[in-house]
Amino acid sequence: MHIVVCIKQVPDTSDVKINPETNTLIREGVVSIINPFDENAVEAALVLKEKLGAKVTVMTMGPPQAESALRETIALGVDDVVLLSDRAFAGSDTWATSYALGKGIAHLEERPDLILFGKQAIDGDTAQVGPGVAEFLNLPIITYVRKVEVEGQLAKVERVFEDGYERMEAELPLVLTVLKEMNVPRMASLRGRMKAKKAEIKKWTAAEIGADPENTGLAGSPTKVVKIFSPPKKVGGIKIEGTAALDAARTVVGKLKEQKVI
């Protein structure tokens, strides 16, 4: 069995602060991490590998620095990694990203039986790339999966929706997007980390995977960002400072009653 996991290197957005004067992002000191949901996808692949004996390939599209994210997955125990990196991919939206990853996966020597994604990336939060890649590859997809088992060519999964879950089945090959609750990602072993430092990282360009320039990067991205801004502040709010806790509590409860909120 061949399992492909697509990951994304993202800025650790929980570290980001806004400069209140200029209303811009302060990105200094923000580190790049593997998108946390993708770590669950990698873990799911490694668990299946341990159980069924699969080969696990991790793929990402990104700048050359994304190599470090791939190294982290080597340390965790994946067998192969591929970095899709090319200036031509610059500015890709979810459509163009799905296209490039689809092309990259199709370019792999060994066809995947299972393609895993995290449910979404924490920087974009779109959850669109998994379904997009499935469409480009014309493969079935099950999203928001919290449990997966594979028996022969049959995948049995649990898919979560708003007020419950469904038990589902599908034949391989199949695309899944996984939830955080699926597992707790392992931490890399010391041997894994030492191996990862020295590993060769396979890099593919747009031309190598046969990506059509019209569908790549900004040219291939139907959406366009036209404005970036911070949301406006609320006017007319009350703010009390330096008041003793009991007085503050009395004031706010009084206000809530006066406004008939409670």
Partner: peptide
Amino acid sequence: AFGGNIMATI
């Protein structure tokens, strides 16, 4: 956008 730290119009 950007992990919900800013707004973007698209």
